[in-house]
Amino acid sequence: MAHKLIYFLSQSHIRSSIAHAWAKKLPLRDVTFISGSWSKARDTNFVNDVLHEFSMEAPNSFSYTPSQKLLEDADLIVTIYDSTHEIAPHFPDTFNKKVVYWDIEDPECISELPTKWAHYQEVCDIIALSVKQLKKAFIEV
């Protein structure tokens, strides 16, 4: 199997870093995962807190901003966006076969703390399931 590069991308690096953390738990060899944002990366303690519930750490890498080279090098670009609050980035047609869109709510859109925390937990669960399906659909082919 050839080495693969999977690039998780979200607007503020929150959901893509959660996906990155879950992907690192997959028992895969010859796959590198990176994550980034198409807008300004934002820090929040909620990411670390929600991942700690699953005995995981957030990736300690910085947010990779999409560049032409990075998009070309990636074997799969997983674009995580919230269709209610965000417009997903458009990629050149040459990348269509390697771009996947996950419509997952942005937990930062909730302002009340107890509700926001519950929303982060729900988003983390949705992303975990999506990453597991990703393994079956794209990596084990």
Rank of each mutant, 00 (worst) to 15 (best):
K69D: 13
V131D: 03
L129P: 02
N45Q: 14
T94K: 15
Y81I: 00
R42S: 08
I139Y: 13
E105M: 13
S16D: 05
E57Y: 10
V141R: 15
E53G: 09
M56E: 11
K25L: 11
S10K: 05
K136T: 14
A19Y: 01
A2S: 15
D30T: 01
F91N: 00
S83T: 06
M1F: 07
S16K: 09
I127D: 00
W38C: 01
S83F: 04
F46I: 01
Y7P: 04
A88D: 02
S61W: 06
D75T: 05
F54C: 11
D49Y: 11
V141C: 10
A118Q: 14
K132D: 12
W22D: 07
V100T: 10
D49Q: 15
K98C: 06
V123N: 01
H13I: 01
H52S: 15
T32M: 11
V123E: 01
S10T: 02
T44A: 05
S67D: 04
M56W: 04
M1E: 06
D103I: 06
V99T: 12
E105N: 11
I14K: 09
E72N: 14
V50F: 02
N60A: 12
Q68T: 13
S55K: 14
K136F: 10
A137S: 12
Y120Q: 02
Q11G: 05
I126S: 08
L26C: 10
I139G: 12
W102A: 10
A118S: 13
L51K: 09
Q121V: 03
L71T: 07
A137C: 09
V100D: 06
L26T: 04
V123P: 03
F91D: 00
E140N: 14
Q11A: 12
T84S: 11
S37D: 07
R42L: 12
I104M: 10
F95C: 03
T94D: 07
K25N: 13
R29Q: 14
L70P: 01
D125C: 09
I110N: 12
E72H: 13
